[in-house]
């Protein structure tokens, strides 16, 4: 069965490059480049693999800012067929994000599955899968490490603490994936060049009346570690053994 797939893509500041001010602990967010969130790449890869196996179409949606074009082009190069950027993202507010994205998905119509990361690396809320499944009235298959489709049912494997499970549900489904699901492809140069010429649909998000929490502070936790570094192994071992013995008493 040809599958009509929506993949949700998030663009975040490259948190690996993010530093915090050594004195105030404030995150130094200026001039940090943006990148596609890793789990979004896993989601794109999962969506494209599903299409390659079953036929169908992959539509990418980014709720972000004007700077999201580069992310969508990267998604195109990986195999996304059509892309929508909705601008107006103001920050982490899962309820607002879910309402904007679910409206877009309803507008697209006839969607068989929505694939997204289970918990994004920056804000780490993990709420979107549950929110979207309720707003779109779709079955939720959460934390997939593999996805397959057969006769209108989606089947996933998920890894829980105490067991692995294979679960399935009738379409349409919201499917969240974990980073272990695949190794996202590095697209060949020709595809990257073709992606650059492909049009991107853009629209602005409507204003939503959503309350947001008041931020009291957002700073790096203080680290009071001693940071005694030994390059002389024997000296280091003696010091460490002393410290461990002290704690074992």
């Amino acid at each position: 069965m040809a599958i009509n797939i929506v993949v949700l893509i998030k663009q975040i500041v490259d948190i690996d490059q993010l530093k915090t001010d050594p004195n105030s602990g404030e995150p130094l967010i200026q001039n940090i480049p943006l990148r596609i969130e890793n789990l979004s790449k896993n989601s794109i890869e999962a969506a494209v693999q599903l299409k390659e196996k079953n036929g169908g179409k992959v539509t990418g949606i980014i709720f972000g800012t004007e700077k999201a074009n580069s992310a969508m082009k990267e998604a195109y190069a990986m195999g996304v067929d059509e892309g929508f950027i909705i601008t107006g993202y103001k920050g982490n507010n899962p309820a607002y994000t879910a309402s904007i994205i679910s409206n877009k998905i309803k507008e697209l119509g006839n969607v068989d599955c929505v694939i997204l990361g289970n918990q994004s690396a920056d804000s780490y809320t993990g709420l979107l899968p549950g929110l979207l499944s309720t707003e779109l009235n779709m079955n939720l298959l959460g934390n997939a490490v593999s996805i397959s489709e057969e006769g209108g049912r989606f089947k996933i494997k998920r890894v829980l603490d105490e067991k692995d499970e294979i679960i399935s549900a009738e379409k349409p489904c919201v499917i969240s994936v974990t980073q272990e699901i695949n190794q996202p492809r590095l697209p060949p140069v020709l595809q990257i060049m073709a992606a650059g010429r492909k049009p991107i649909n853009a629209s602005a998000a409507g204003a939503g009346n959503f309350e947001t929490p008041k931020i009291v502070s957002n700073i790096a936790p203080k680290s009071d570690r001693k940071r005694q570094l030994f390059e002389d192994m024997d000296k280091g071992v003696a010091e460490v053994a002393k410290a461990i013995r002290g704690e074992m008493k």
């Binding site: 993010l18 931020i215 957002n218």
Partner: peptide
């Protein structure tokens, strides 16, 4: 927040 780099305190 920010993947564990900061602690976000909210009210």
């Amino acid at each position: 927040f920010f993947g564990g780099k900061t602690i976000l305190e909210e009210e």
